[in-house]
Structures are given as C-alpha cells and as structure tokens.
Nucleic acid binder design. Structure first.
Length: 314
DNA sequence: ACGATTATTGCGTTCTT
DNA sequence: AAGAAAACAATAATCGT
C-alpha cells in the first residue's frame, strides 16, 4: 500500500527524465540496482517496487497548457473492445453542463438505446467486450498493474482471434489470460488467487490456461520462490533488512533447486519467517502461512529444509 | 504458538494388457 | 502405446506441549 502511494507521487515528476534512459537506477532505500520485472521496477536487493506500470500509453494531457505537445484525444487502450474510441451518450446534462429534463431527456434515452444496439457489429465483438470488462474486473480485484491487465486483454483478443473460445466460457478465458500473463512476467499470483475471482469453475480456468499455453506457446517461466517474497513481505509488514535477507534465502534456494517440487509461495513464506526470526521481528508461523495461503506445517517443513541445507558449505 | 505425528493428495514412475 | 497401480514426497489436519 505504502509503495503504491509512493508511486503516485513519483510518477509525474520522474516520468520525463527517466522514461527510456536505460541507465542504472538506484533504489531509494538501499541504493541497490533496480531492474525491470514484468512491468514493475523492482530493487534487486531489497525487493522494493520502485515503480509499476512503466509503460505509459496515455496521451499528453498537458496539450492545452503548452502548445508544444500535440498528442491528443482519448487514450487508446487494448482493454476496450473498440480500443476506447467509442462514443457514449451521457446522462443528465447538455453540452454546457445545464440540466435537461422532460421530453428531451426521454428522446435522449431512446437515442442511447439505439446507439448501444448499433455498437456491436457482431456477436464476436460483443463477446470480446464482455471478456475485456471481465479482465478489467479481475485485474482490479487482484490489484495487478496496468501493464499486466493490458497484456491480458491483448492475449484475450488473440485467443478469440484464433477461435479458442468456441464451446468454452468467456469467464474462464479471462481468468486464464490473466494467470497466463502473470506467469509470463514472473508476477507472483497463484492460480488459486485468480480462480477465486473467476466467475466460473476452477477447472475451467485451468483448462483455459492450458489451451492458451498450448496454442500460443506461452513463455511461462516456472514460478520461483523469490518472486513471492516482495509481496508477502509487504503483506506481513516486515522491515527492509528482513525482506532483503528473505530474498537472499529464497534466491539461493531457487538456485540450489531446493524449491523443486514445493509450492514456491509456501517456500517464500518460510524464508520470510526465518529472516524475521533472525532479526527478532515477531512474525508467527501462522501469519506467514496465512499470507502465502499454506498451512503452518508447510512453513515448518520448508524452514527445516532451508536450515538443514546450510548455505555456507558448497 | 510451536512441534510431532498421522492422514491426504497429487504426481512421476513402473508395471500390465 | 495406453492405462492401471504401487510408491513417494508435499501438504494438511490433528493432537499434545
């Protein structure tokens, strides 16, 4: 939460200077190197999310202030079936903001109805619109960055273009697209979390994902424990040093293949638990387990695995 | 809250047909 | 080659401290 507000302030200031410099950036907290992880700028050492939604497709809103910039108009977005270029008939007021009433209002109502009906040229286009709304809904519920949401919308478009939706539900595919994009970007969301917001059966989501994976050959990386550390850390409200230590543990465990066969989120929870324990921060097994949606027994098992590995000797 | 023990589940292997 | 089954590891549930 706190990092999110932080972004909101920083963006307007730094957007111009940093846009595509590609130069090294420093984490404001620990001066570590910052690199891109799936649409988010994340500090390599402490895991702080410096900036998210780095791709800005928006227009230059300052056009009316300084006449130099001429990119105007509504923002074009893949999240609307017509890419945001449609027109809508508003309610209540006329063009000057004065209220309207009576016959005129009812006339506008009829006009709006016909306008809405004429909006979709085909069933497919209507389905697309439905799907994109659903993608937006789930992405918002999961608190995902905009770039992820937009990628998911684009993926949904492709899926429909390839006729993958035939006989399957729209809702399953929207959830599947979101999960697929998260996987491709190393963004830590389990399929369970996505399923929780999908308006369809969980198996349908899995099926949609596997179809997407097969048809498009998605670049889905195997999920890593270290990917889950930043989010869990912020959920648990631990300090910087704890988070950094946990990230180190997770990274080493990932490299050593210690996480193979385990649930990476549960493993990350164990890393956080150990790190917090070392620093004397009171994070109980229960809270750590709950944040990662695993049981305390899993946290314990993974903790023992880490401890017995003993990172010094190899 | 934590640890130990037991039960369940999921999954890759291996054995059959 | 396809399916069934025994085997194993990870996770969850339960009980005791």
């Amino acid at each position: 939460m706190s990092s999110r507000e932080f972004n909101g302030q920083e963006r307007s200031v730094e957007q111009d200077t940093e846009q595509k410099s590609g130069d090294r950036e420093e984490c404001p907290d620990c001066q570590g190197q910052v690199n891109m992880v799936g649409g988010e700028k994340v500090c390599r050492t402490c895991g702080l999310v410096v900036e998210e939604n780095c791709i800005d497709r928006g227009p230059e809103w300052r056009t009316f202030e300084t006449d130099k910039r001429d990119r105007t108009g509504a923002p074009i977005t893949p999240t609307r079936h017509d890419r945001g270029l449609s027109t809508e008939i508003g309610f209540g007021t006329d063009g000057k903001g004065n209220p309207i009433s009576g016959r005129k209002r009812r006339q506008l109502g009829r006009l709006r109805r016909e306008h809405d009906r004429g909006r979709w040229r085909s069933k497919a286009e209507r389905n697309l619109a439905l799907g994109l709304v659903d993608v937006r809904r789930i992405a918002g519920a999961l608190d995902l960055p905009e770039s992820i949401r937009d990628q998911a919308c684009t993926l949904f478009r492709s899926a429909q273009g390839e006729d993958l939706l035939r006989g399957r539900s729209i809702e399953a595919f929207t959830a599947g697209c979101l999960y697929a994009v998260c996987r491709c970007n190393g963004l830590p969301r389990t399929i369970e979390e996505v399923k929780a917001f999908a308006r369809c059966g969980g198996s349908a989501v899995e099926n949609a994902y596997s179809v997407l994976n097969k048809e498009f050959g998605l670049a889905a990386k195997p999920p890593l424990a270290q990917d889950y550390v930043p989010r869990l850390a912020s959920d648990l409200n631990v300090g910087e040093t704890v988070q950094r230590r946990a990230l180190d543990l997770a990274r080493e465990a990932d490299d050593a293949g210690l996480v193979n066969g385990c649930q990476p989120s549960g493993f990350a929870a164990a890393c956080l638990y150990i790190a917090a324990d070392e620093q004397g921060e009171g994070v109980s097994q229960l809270t750590a387990a709950h944040a990662a949606d695993v049981s305390t027994a899993t946290v314990r098992a993974n903790r023992d695995k880490i401890r017995s590995f003993d990172f010094e000797d190899p």
